[in-house]
Simulated assay, not measured.
Amino acid sequence: MGESTVRAATPRGRGVEPARRGRPGFDRATLLDAAVAVFNESGYDATSVAALAARLGLSKAAIYHHFASKEEILETALGAALDGLEGVLAETGGIPPTDRLAAVLQGAVRVLAANLPSVTLLLRVRGNSEIERRALDRRRAFDQAVTAIVREAQTDGAVRADVDASVATRLLFGMVNSLVEWYRPGGPEDADGLARDVLTVALDGLRTR
């Protein structure tokens, strides 16, 4: 299969890597999206580069033009999901813990809606490689940060204290994470509406007032 390479001009004075294309229609971003869809459908471990290329109608060289390995595709996809979640924590710092808990939950739902395939992939990794273990470490750190916020809200008396903070966090994000099983962008409810619904159902059972 013939391959072509189109290089966009790099803006003067910037060290931005030119956009690269393998097969027309598959730049790095669209190739990543397509690969993640295949991983979610067939399983990451079960999908070789050869199988991925065959599914996408590409040569392996076209994939390697954008990514050095299958592992790099995985790392990029997981990083997108985790960067979004960690960004929510960073953006909500400095506000009262109960308000921050609400903002984190809403932000997490929006991240999931915006990066549904990558978040789905993140929730399915099991630590079978170093990349997966690093991703799981970051996910655990996120969960621990949310648990600390729940604990602070309990100390303030705004969230009931008869539920262990770590259990509450698992239950809250069990609800958020379950959205990958049924939520589809473009449906009757947008991400903001979904975030409001999750917040209402999740926190009304924890609030003391």
Rank of each mutant, 00 (worst) to 15 (best):
E75K: 08
E75W: 07
T76D: 12
T76W: 04
T76E: 12
A77F: 08
A77K: 02
A77M: 01
A77L: 00
A77G: 12
L78A: 08
L78R: 01
G79Q: 02
A81I: 01
A81N: 04
A81F: 05
L82K: 04
L82C: 03
L82W: 00
D83G: 06
D83W: 03
G84P: 11
G84W: 01
L85H: 05
E86D: 11
E86Y: 10
E86L: 11
G87T: 02
G87H: 07
G87I: 05
V88L: 07
V88R: 02
L89F: 04
L89A: 10
A90G: 15
A90T: 15
A90K: 15
A90F: 12
E91F: 11
E91T: 13
T92S: 12
T92F: 14
G94Q: 11
G94V: 10
I95D: 03
I95E: 11
P96H: 06
P96I: 04
P96C: 03
P96N: 04
P97T: 11
P97A: 12
P97D: 04
T98S: 14
T98G: 13
T98W: 14
D99V: 08
D99L: 15
L101N: 01
L101I: 12
L101D: 05
L101T: 02
A102Y: 13
A102W: 06
A103M: 00
A103H: 04
A103S: 11
V104Q: 06
V104S: 07
L105E: 12
L105S: 11
L105W: 03
L105Q: 11
Q106E: 15
Q106F: 10
Q106M: 05
Q106I: 04
A108Y: 00
A108I: 05
A108W: 11
A108T: 10
R110Y: 03
R110K: 14
R110F: 01
R110W: 03
V111K: 06
